[in-house]
Amino acid sequence: MNHQLKGIKILLVDDEPNILQFLELGLQNEGFDVETAQDGFAAITVARQFQPHLAILDVMMPGMDGFEVCRMLKKTENIAVIMLTAKEEVEDRVKGLTLGADDYMVKPFSFEELLARIHARIRNHFPNLLGEVVIGPFRIDDRRKEISYDNRVLELSPTEYELLSFLVINHGLVLSKSKILDKVWGYDFGGEENIVEVYIRSLRDKLSDKEHRLIRTLRGAGYRVDLP
């Protein structure tokens, strides 16, 4: 269990009991406080009492669907929302994001990817809650802008800090150069994509990752952090 996550509250809403139970146990084991609901009406009631930081909403539910739940939650609560759907329909995704959803995932998905997206949403929405995060051998202290690896504080420039944080928080996911540039350098960055390679090389040196086992290069796709 990651004790840094204790006190971060997540509401799970899905009409499939098996999915609900799987996600509830997994997130509780990670250290989150979790409440569940099996339909939209129950979700609104639970949210008012529980005051979650983040809601994970299934789109297709009887009665009130996930879109309507998202709209109502965003109207009344300070909450991050991740939508789940069994269909990879662009229209559904656009509708959810238009209603205020912060992220979108298509079933089936890996628990590790969901966890990475939860971290990213909480960090964006409630930065003070994740002031310090422990992920494998990494300790990221966002308040001090400091990262430790195997209990050793790394000497990082501000850009190196942002890049390594982004890679580690999204560990297990392949991140393209363009996505890294958008997140770390900003969407209006006018320089060359090769700058990512330069900074990756510097991070590998500082992590003593000569064999690229920690920060892997996937040719034509991007980079992925694999935790030991």
Rank of each mutant, 00 (worst) to 15 (best):
V133G: 05
V133W: 15
V133H: 04
V134Q: 13
I135A: 15
I135P: 14
I135Q: 05
G136P: 04
G136L: 14
P137H: 05
P137G: 00
P137C: 03
F138T: 05
F138E: 15
F138N: 14
I140T: 07
I140A: 02
I140L: 14
D141I: 05
D142Y: 04
D142H: 05
D142V: 01
R143C: 06
R143S: 01
R144T: 03
K145G: 12
K145H: 11
K145Y: 03
E146W: 10
I147A: 05
S148W: 03
S148E: 13
Y149F: 13
Y149S: 13
D150G: 02
N151W: 02
N151F: 01
N151P: 00
R152H: 08
V153G: 09
V153I: 09
V153L: 09
V153W: 13
L154A: 08
L154T: 09
L154M: 01
E155W: 04
E155V: 03
L156Q: 07
S157F: 01
S157W: 00
P158D: 00
T159D: 03
T159M: 11
E160V: 05
E160F: 01
E160K: 09
E160Q: 06
E160M: 05
Y161I: 13
Y161R: 11
L163M: 15
L163H: 04
S165L: 09
S165Q: 11
F166I: 05
F166S: 02
F166D: 12
L167I: 09
V168A: 07
V168Y: 00
I169V: 15
I169Y: 03
I169G: 04
N170G: 02
N170D: 04
H171R: 14
G172W: 14
L173C: 04
L173V: 11
V174E: 15
V174Y: 08
V174L: 12
V174G: 07
L175I: 14
L175E: 07
S176I: 06
K177A: 10
K177G: 15
